[in-house]
Design a protein around this nucleic acid. Structure first.
Lengths: 142, 142
DNA sequence: CTATATGCAAATAGTTTGCCTGTTA
DNA sequence: TAACAGGCAAACTATTTGCATATAG
């Protein structure tokens, strides 16, 4: 993925939902793509300020919301304290390390044989989120 | 399950973790068992006040925390806005209806063939939580 | 040009904390 | 009778809102 491809995809995606392309939205998206460790909104804010000192917290929340609505970013909710954001839109789930607090992407598709069999008639699922808690490889060694 | 069996189990469970049995804890647990629709802490508080008008919000949070630590109640985190609580400790996941906001228990066990295959070496899982978003039978009809 | 987005600060919601009093084992 | 738990109110954190200004299309 070249940066240019990402920018194009960003603009297209925003436009597709009727959102304007702004420097703040591009910047927040770039911040998320740069360091993909599932930052909280607060962490995104602090990183975003480095390259754009005048950006405000409210704008970061607005941008994140817009990016989520445009399908470019996904909300992750492993930690009850604060929402975390992830620009990886492929099917995957999240592993939350209870020892170090880290969040890891796990490639994993809940296929029909797993997810469909016990869902009672009438329920129409639109999204699955699987969170796994435990110890990451580094913490498990101790 | 008779009420007496539950009380015994409650006291035993609390004692097993070194917690005392108090009327507030028993009451909060009874509230959760009575109407199992995954209430928020606020909703538990309002229901608890009916039979115990002097109970405080902080005590409700304390009791919920104690019950969770005793393995009698589980935290459910489908809705980012507020934590929800569920006294159903059997293996199941939660279906969150985006239309009406309801939370439904779905009997579902993530068995080894589903959950184990893609987890990279080194990760030691301790708990899984699967949340499904979509429309419940009632809302899907519209 | 005009609808939409930003920046700021104040407001809100959920949850936690401190401190003193009450209760359990 | 200690250690633990509850009540109350204030504090804290994450997020949202209102409003005036700026900007994209």
């Amino acid at each position: 993925m070249s940066p240019k491809t990402n920018e194009q995809s960003l603009n297209e995606r925003l436009a597709a939902r009727g959102f304007r392309s702004t420097s703040q939205r591009e910047h927040v998206y770039r911040v998320l793509m740069q360091e993909r460790n599932h930052p909280t909104a607060e962490q995104v804010f602090m990183r975003a300020k480095k390259g754009m000192p005048d950006i405000s917290m409210a704008t970061v929340y607005n941008c994140l919301d817009t990016l989520v609505k445009s399908g470019l970013v996904r909300e992750v909710n492993v930690d009850p304290a604060a929402m975390r954001y992830c620009p990886n839109m492929t099917d995957h789930c999240h592993f939350y390390c209870d020892a170090c607090g880290g969040v890891f992407d796990i490639d994993f598709v809940l296929n029909a044989s797993c997810s469909g069999m016990a869902l009672p008639k009438g329920f129409k699922p639109s999204a699955y989120e699987l969170s796994i808690h435990g110890a990451c490889p580094k913490c498990a060694k101790k």
